[in-house]
Design a protein around this nucleic acid. Structure first.
Length: 487
RNA sequence: CGGGGCGUGGCGCAGCUCGGUAGCGCGCCUGCUUUGGGAGCAGGAGGUCCCCGGUUCGAAUCCGGGCGCCCCGACCA
């Protein structure tokens, strides 16, 4: 037996653990381009499943996909004042092409509002052209100074939805609808229940009137902004001449929304469910849900055992399970177990000579409830029939654990000062629910002192039963807010 | 952008203080034996020591300059 080659435990250094997991589980690798990563098949497989689920939800609510170009004329970005201010520092700019200096530089899109609304202006004339509900899957570039695999890379993949509506109410409803979709996706698919709500003025998207967000709590009790949905008002419509003629014959500016979720979600998935053995992929998103490992002594045995393994895999495939057979002969079973656990495959079926004789297989779950056996021998037919429900149970188990962890990490009490907020966070609190007067100065001071930010002004169902009375900056609270240190 | 660290076979590192034939572990290839929690033995392949310059008979090692990456902080999906 070789000596252990484990990961740095989460308790020792969460950040080191995260990097090692991402690399060793082959989710991604560093690329030769500064701050950019290569997403490897296992990581991309997770992303593809996320894409599929989200895409289905967008389509089901009337959205269509389209594609807009990577390069945006510099002048477009500069059109909306707040928008430029927010993105200017992180723009990558193309100044040369075809061997010549360009008359007008292009920026590599950091987000596509400007070019999309410029096009919408061309396509929309009448209220009958609205709402316009498009989404695009693509890449964007933000020249971040400090990057981290999946969580913040110079280039990342995402979807950005952009809509135009005839009324403010409709745009508002759209931005809330999408926030709900993100939330449902995170709960049902990622098993990562977020807190949702409104961003403060200081934290909102550059160019938005209002920003809504899903904030998830990671195992190290830092918050991750997992998706955002913005009500843009008429800010972009006015800059790009996106007008329409109303039913009453008046020319009016359209109301826009934009919303996005990125490959950052893969990082969130890792930090929500991962353990010291590696990734734990929720069954609904796992590229492979079940791996079948044949175990044999001799070559003849290998033939018959592998044949049986393939048959089991076929039956599982027919019942809708994503399954792989690991029939590599040069690796010992133990080596395979470790590898698949590191990648987070939810379930494993082992079949060896012993099992063959008894008509059994051994079934192991990546994660089991406390006290439950890690491995179970069961009749082959029972295993095949039982795996679907077990995957469902595991999905639910992960969600329940994540939800419990989020609530255990949440503190709801009167917070009297920024110093007290800092103490709570230093003491291990994740989300701190406090009162706030709405004063930006109080927010800024607490941010400075506690090195934390208001993640959201929570939606109603997340608010405390007894609303906080006191603003942490002094005086009376006008609303409840959720503080956290964030990624 | 400030602070720190690191650049040596694919990966992780030692060697550098005190200059003298480039080493270890893992991985890889071949063969045999193995396979129920990271297999063993034997043989083998693989290196412009990040780059440029300087000192020297001689530089991975000393000196100067540059580049790159990672980590920590401030800003950000």
């Amino acid at each position: 037996m070789a000596k252990k080659k484990g990961l740095t435990p989460r308790s020792e250094d969460f950040s080191a653990w995260y990097n090692e997991v991402v690399l060793q589980a082959e989710l991604a690798d560093y690329s030769p381009v500064r701050g950019s990563m290569v997403i490897r098949p296992w990581g991309y497989g997770l992303w593809e499943n996320m894409q599929r689920a989200l895409d289905d939800m967008f389509k089901a609510t009337g959205h269509s996909n389209a594609y807009f170009p990577l390069l945006i004329p510099m002048s477009f970005i500069e059109r909306e004042k707040e928008h430029v201010k927010g993105f200017r520092p992180e723009l990558a700019v193309v100044t040369h092409a075809g061997g010549k200096e360009l008359e007008e530089p292009y920026v590599v899109r950091p987000t596509s509002e400007t070019i999309i609304y410029a096009m919408y202006a061309k396509w929309v004339q009448s209220y009958r052209d609205l709402p316009l509900l498009l989404n695009q899957w693509g890449n964007v570039m933000r020249w971040e100074l400090r990057t981290r695999l999946f969580l913040r890379t110079a280039e990342f993949l995402w979807q950005e939805g952009h809509t135009a509506h005839a009324s403010e109410d409709e745009a508002e409803a759209e931005s809330r609808l999408i926030l709900g979709i993100y939330r449902r996706f995170m709960e049902e698919w990622m098993a990562m229940p977020p807190v949702t709500g409104l961003k403060t003025e200081a934290e909102k998207f550059a160019g938005a009137v209002r920003s809504y967000a899903c904030e998830a709590l990671m195992q190290d009790r830092k918050a991750l902004q997992a998706a955002t949905s913005h009500m843009l008002g008429q800010n972009f419509a006015k800059q790009f001449g996106l007008t329409f003629q109303s039913e009453e014959g008046r020319e009016e500016y359209a109301w826009n929304t934009s919303w996005g979720a990125s490959t950052r979600l893969v990082g969130g998935l890792v930090m929500t469910h991962g353990d010291d053995a590696g990734v734990v992929a929720p069954p609904k998103l796992a590229p492979t849900q079940v791996v079948v490992v044949p175990i044999a002594r001799s070559d003849e045995q290998a033939v018959s055992v592998t044949e049986r393994a393939r048959r089991i895999a076929e039956e599982l495939t027919n019942s809708g399970v994503r399954v792989a057979v690991d029939d590599r002969r040069h690796l010992s079973p133990g080596a395979k177990f470790f590898e698949w656990e590191r990648k987070g495959v939810p379930m494993r079926v082992e079949i060896g000579p012993r099992d063959m004789e008894r008509g059994e297989v051994v079934v192991a779950s990546r994660v089991v409830a406390a006290g439950a056996p890690r491995k179970e021998a069961m009749a082959e037919a029972d295993a095949v029939a039982g795996i679907g429900p077990r995957l469902d149970d595991l999905q639910e188990h992960l969600r329940a654990v994540a939800l419990a962890r989020r609530e255990e990490g949440s503190v709801r009490q009167e917070v009297g000062s920024p110093e007290e907020l800092a103490e709570l966070l230093d003491g291990g609190a994740g989300f701190v629910y406090s009162g706030w007067s709405g004063d930006p100065a109080a927010e800024a001071r607490a941010k400075e002192v506690a090195k934390a930010s208001i993640r959201v002004i929570p939606d109603e169902e997340f608010r405390s039963e007894t609303p906080p009375a006191q603003c942490l900056g002094g005086g009376k609270a006008r609303m409840e807010v959720v503080w956290a240190r964030a990624y």
